[in-house]
């Protein structure tokens, strides 16, 4: 296991290095922040001073090396706009996004697993066909449109749920969380469901496919031949097997959920990282963009590692290979 972890860490470092180069080049290509940051009335002298202060006068490769050197010391640069460390800005907003993404993932599992299980066990019932047809909507409806519809129905017309912001928050470990207050939860429901929509459909389809495949296996029939109750066969023999693909996909999706919560955060004015990155792109705040993208890269790498470890816990065959 230690060798496995070590190997993975070295791989991770290589990935981060390559990604940092790509991100840096990409952001450089997006546009020149000077045009936006400095007022058109500024004279040549002021302009040059600002360029120098931001380190934009150096050639690209030097800028990159400076960035890399600072990044190794944990400094991802200061925001051009807020004049605060980019990392601090992002970390401040991370709890909001994490909360949203975790909420969405939990919702997807709570809603998706039972529906998928039902659809897999009774593939020919009208209810199952309804579930599967609806899940296509979950895949194909655009997130922002569903978000707007949710606001229209539940916030504007019915007035049940608030439509914007995080609501009341509680500070734990220096971070603000809203899932611990009832007001915060009320604010969380709609954005989380909106973000979960795609994942619910995904979980339903994965679970259904897994159940249908597993039900045909000899070991399920053998479990029935042992006289076990249908509940035991379904929830122990079948369920544990379908959890393997579901955990893998949902885990990998988690990174995507965080990265792409941008749309949901914009629609519901959820003050998370996604909203920060959109604002930063608008004003070409390079350090924040780079720092955000590097954070996402790190996140994906971490998630991949966690998924691999969880996978080995669920599937004994993988566990054995890890030991050898």
């Amino acid at each position: 296991m230690t060798a496995f972890l070590l190997r993975r860490l070295i791989q991770a470092a290589a990935v981060v290095l390559v990604m940092s180069l790509l991100v840096f080049l990409g952001v450089f290509a997006v546009g020149d922040p000077i045009e936006i940051l400095i007022s058109p009335e500024a004279d040549q002298f002021e302009r040059e001073r600002a360029v120098k202060a931001l380190g934009l006068d150096l050639p690209l490769w030097q800028q990159y090396l400076v960035f890399l050197g600072n990044a190794l010391r944990g400094d991802l640069g200061r925001s051009f706009v807020f004049n605060e460390p980019a990392l601090k800005l992002i970390l401040e907003r991370m709890p909001a996004t994490l909360e949203l993404a975790i909420g969405a993932t939990v919702a997807a599992l709570i809603i998706g697993l039972p529906l998928g299980l039902y659809a897999g066990l009774k593939p020919n019932s009208p209810v199952s066909k309804g579930i599967m047809a609806t899940s296509i909507l979950g895949f194909s409806l655009p997130t922002f449109w569903v978000g707007l519809m949710l606001i229209m129905v539940f916030a504007v017309q019915l007035g049940w749920l608030p439509s914007t912001g995080r609501g009341e928050t509680v500070t734990i470990l220096g971070m603000r969380w809203s899932f611990l207050t009832s007001d915060g939860i009320a604010h969380l429901i709609m954005p989380a469901l909106n973000l979960a929509l795609f994942k619910i459909s995904l979980v339903i389809r994965l679970t259904r496919a897994g159940v249908r495949e597993t039900m045909l296996m000899d070991y399920v029939k053998f479990a029935r031949a042992k006289g076990l109750s249908p509940a035991r066969v379904t929830f122990v023999h079948v369920f544990k097997n379908i959890l393997i693909p579901v955990v893998t996909v949902v885990g990998l999706e988690f990174g995507g959920t965080i990265a792409f919560s941008v749309v949901t955060e914009s629609v519901f004015a959820w003050p998370g990282m996604g909203k920060l990155i959109i604002d930063s792109i608008n004003v070409l705040d390079r350090p924040v963009m780079v720092a955000y993208l590097m954070m996402i890269v790190l996140l994906f790498i971490t998630i991949n590692l966690v998924v691999d470890i969880t996978y080995s816990l669920l599937d004994p065959r993988v566990r054995l290979e890890g030991k050898q």
């Binding site: 296996m217 000899d218 070991y219 053998f222 479990a223 122990v236 023999h237 544990k240 097997n241 393997i244 669920l314 599937d315 004994p316 065959r317």
Partner: peptide, 8 residues
């Protein structure tokens, strides 16, 4: 095939 691969 008769024994469930994920159960001891």
């Amino acid at each position: 095939m008769t024994l469930n691969p994920v159960l001891r």
